[in-house]
Design a protein around this nucleic acid. Sequence first.
DNA 1: CATGGCGTTTCGTGGGACGGAATAGTTTGC
DNA 2: GCAAACTATTCCGTCCCACGAAACGCCATG
Lengths: 261, 261
Amino acid sequence: MAKGSDQYSVLPVAKAMQVFAYVASQPHAVTLAEVALALSLPKTTVFRYLQTLSASGFFAHDIERDRYGVGERFRALAQKDAVHHSIRRSAEAELDRLVDGFRQTVNLGVLAEDEVVYVDIREATRSQRFQARIGHRHPVHSTSLGKAIAAFLPDETVERLILPEFEQRTFRTLTDPRTFRRQVMETRRRGFAMETGENEDGVTCIGVPILDGHGFPIAAMSLSAPENRMRVLADRVAEALQDAARRITQALPPVAPTISG
Amino acid sequence: MAKGSDQYSVLPVAKAMQVFAYVASQPHAVTLAEVALALSLPKTTVFRYLQTLSASGFFAHDIERDRYGVGERFRALAQKDAVHHSIRRSAEAELDRLVDGFRQTVNLGVLAEDEVVYVDIREATRSQRFQARIGHRHPVHSTSLGKAIAAFLPDETVERLILPEFEQRTFRTLTDPRTFRRQVMETRRRGFAMETGENEDGVTCIGVPILDGHGFPIAAMSLSAPENRMRVLADRVAEALQDAARRITQALPPVAPTISG
DNA sequence: CATGGCGTTTCGTGGGACGGAATAGTTTGC
DNA sequence: GCAAACTATTCCGTCCCACGAAACGCCATG
């Protein structure tokens, strides 16, 4: 039970987290007095933390019984994190294997707010000048990650992703919705997506979806290489990516419920 | 996004929870600058919160990449809460049904640190003088809840529950380990546990285990009544409890992984 | 070599977190 | 049925420490 006195720790926050941990770990909804006693904190202080945590939706205050429990906001966050975490965790080993095998940059991405978010990136070289960074967002239509995911989404969802104005990121970016639809069909058929300098000049990508147990594309994985390099590697890369994606699907925890759409 | 300025809110805590929510909702590990920008908070402040949350184990600080993500402590809590929550939630309707049907107090309990913890209680009458309260703990050997759970636990675990000195709560409490073992066998055979004034004078209980998909007793449910009342009801109560428990098992989310033993 | 972006550290200030004590409201127990 | 004991809530004065601007140092970038 570290006191959290690490130079920069904010005491109210550290103590509130103690309260948080206690409440979340109990099998039952708790009372103010119980928490104060268990943590040896003044009840006024605990009272304020409970109020604060309830006000922000992390706790639920059952007025009737005057008891505090974990709230839906917390559960929603936990659920979201669990999904993301299991994706990253299951993909780890395969990303390493790919970067070792091809000596090229490998990306893991998910769809969020209709954009591709880079979630993990393994660089082969130090010259990362043109690479994306973790957390960066790129359009769906200009990336192999985006195309790979879109291809395995229900048609309605794909239509929603089609913006009136697709951003022209390079002179090669395909901005015509009809072209996009055709590529989606093509990707769905052959199982992997391609992108040649449409997102970043001189860089080519091959991407594959990562499907959950229900066949839903919860993420995608891509390998990017300079155009001339990729010309040689393409076939082997496509093969390797698809194999890796299959193994990741296997490694995923059984039936991630994905409660909220 | 309520500011959480509800009279008693502690600002540092409220803001730290904003940080918490942001980090947990992102699919990727985040940087200090990203959080500060996203939440429009001064980076010094965010820095301190991230430090505090990392120090307390809720966040994991990846020093290598200087990124913050959700930590294992948080996941463990979330997991624990999810299990407890799903038990309570699945049992709710059945508890109500039982209390309505028999007009007697109904209890829901789980095992924690080798004791029975009351997790939900529905009182039929106002005279709650002798009843347990939510969060209270009673011994395994003197309650029908405890016996019901013990009966469906692996033998090794049952042995661990047997203390050198079983507490004598009433003059009827059975304190002999051999008697306890015999009752456990008996309970396992017939599917429900009985307890007559062994925990509280004049009160008799019948308890049944609530099993998860693997047949593991994750909780138990009991109905308590005055001895003379129970004499009449016993058969019907045992029947009803077992039916209810079966339905709760059905209502439980598919395969609660129960990651940690 | 210069520039910008980042995380870390410092520091002085003032607001607000703190907790004891008083209040109010409810249950317990005789 | 009244007193005692418990609870959650409110009040208030003190003093601490959370705050955030600014400075610093460290890579990367170009």
